[in-house]
Design a protein around this nucleic acid. Structure first.
Lengths: 214, 214
DNA sequence: GCTATAATTTGAACATGTTCAATATTGAAG
DNA sequence: CTTCAATATTGAACATGTTCAAATTATAGC
């Protein structure tokens, strides 16, 4: 109840201007009650992102069926995400608010977001299923797409074009390019040149701890 | 005076825990006085970033002289930045705090940070000077490096290794890879395959408004 | 030196996120 | 039905970023 009311207010007016008192009032409880269910205002955002993730996984499962090429599948996955977020641009920025704070539960690279991050990357890996690429490359690409998808959301937040068409066009182009890139790496001619980069990049990621362990 | 005291406290204790009252007390003025010079706490961070940028430009001008290869030059530019930031990891996260808020003066892609962004990208372009690449590719790479450098700072914030050696190693690897990539695109054999991607990517960036106008 | 204007400084007041001791409600055990 | 512990709710109090009217100090023109 508190969650729904909060979300409604965030959507309508934005994250900053909505006070915990507003939320409590909307839910017809005392201010303190909200804190019984959510330890902080930002925890509501955290719960929201869990929800988004859940919806995305479900939506992707639905929409990916029958889609074939890497480009088409990737585009589908990204458009899906935007579809889910489309009413929420007003407060989406709050998601990134603590993304850079080391040790913070919403930190992009932190422990607290690890599950979501992995799940998210798995979804992007799903988009590449059926494509003829090595597991290694898939891992690399999943990570890259996840990162790019953060950029996409950032762009989406700032995109004032009608129905955020610019972001959607960007997604199409990006998916296209990536599809082309995958084909390119599969070309016998180019592969020997590109392979060392893949290997190096993957090594770097591993060492950096952005992939697998850490 | 207020700026110096604030920075000292931020460095020592972090951004959150340092209150405006602390800062004012340290500078031996009333709380309100701080607001005469800085419209908000976050404006101090903004001023800090201006300073960092200034220092970086100066340092790069110095250190780039005599360095030749793209990889070496790029590494130098990035290590320089880390060198400048090294005492400030504790509160660097505050820089990103409002980076995703549309319309906010510290927003990554916003108008308010445009000058800094362009200047920053120009510095990275500088690193590529002397390299045999087209103006177009240089533009594309400058943008990409700028973006990667944001990632670097994010990683740096989280890097608890001795003297942040992991981040420095990451920079070396990244510079290496990029140097190799530049060479690769100059190879007559590969260029025809890679060229269409460059063109498409640049088009996309232009359309997205991350490059040139907007 | 005097006055008027501008620049600076003050600290109380305000809004909002958060905490917490006190109170009320619920639900299981007897 | 009573008791009692767990659960839920309340609202006042607190900390901190920020505002602002009032007071003070500096500066320029005479």
């Amino acid at each position: 109840m508190i969650f729904e009311k909060a979300l409604g207010l965030f959507r309508r007016h934005g994250f900053e201007v909505t006070t915990m008192r507003d939320i409590a009032r909307a839910a017809k409880v005392a201010t303190g009650a909200a804190y019984y269910y959510f330890p902080s205002k930002e925890a509501i955002v955290s719960a929201y992102y869990d929800e988004v993730q859940r919806l995305h996984v479900a939506k992707v499962r639905e929409e990916l069926a029958g889609k074939e090429g890497a480009a088409e599948r990737l585009a589908s996955v990204l458009h899906s995400k935007l579809e889910i977020l489309k009413e929420d641009r007003k407060f989406l920025g709050a998601l990134f608010r603590y993304s850079s704070e080391a040790g913070h539960p919403l930190s992009v690279f932190g422990k607290g977001t690890e599950t979501q991050r992995k799940q998210s990357m798995a979804v992007f890996g799903e988009a590449l299923a059926g494509t003829e690429i090595s597991e290694e490359l898939k891992e690399l690409l999943s990570w890259g797409i996840w990162l790019a998808h953060l950029g996409m959301i950032l762009y989406f937040i700032h995109d004032e074009s009608e129905a955020q068409s610019r972001t959607h066009r960007l997604v199409d182009r990006f998916a296209d390019m990536l599809g082309g890139l995958v084909e390119l790496t599969n070309s016998a001619l180019v592969r020997p040149f590109v392979k060392p980069f893949q290997v190096k990049m993957l090594e770097t990621l591993r060492e950096a701890g952005w992939s697998e362990e850490r």
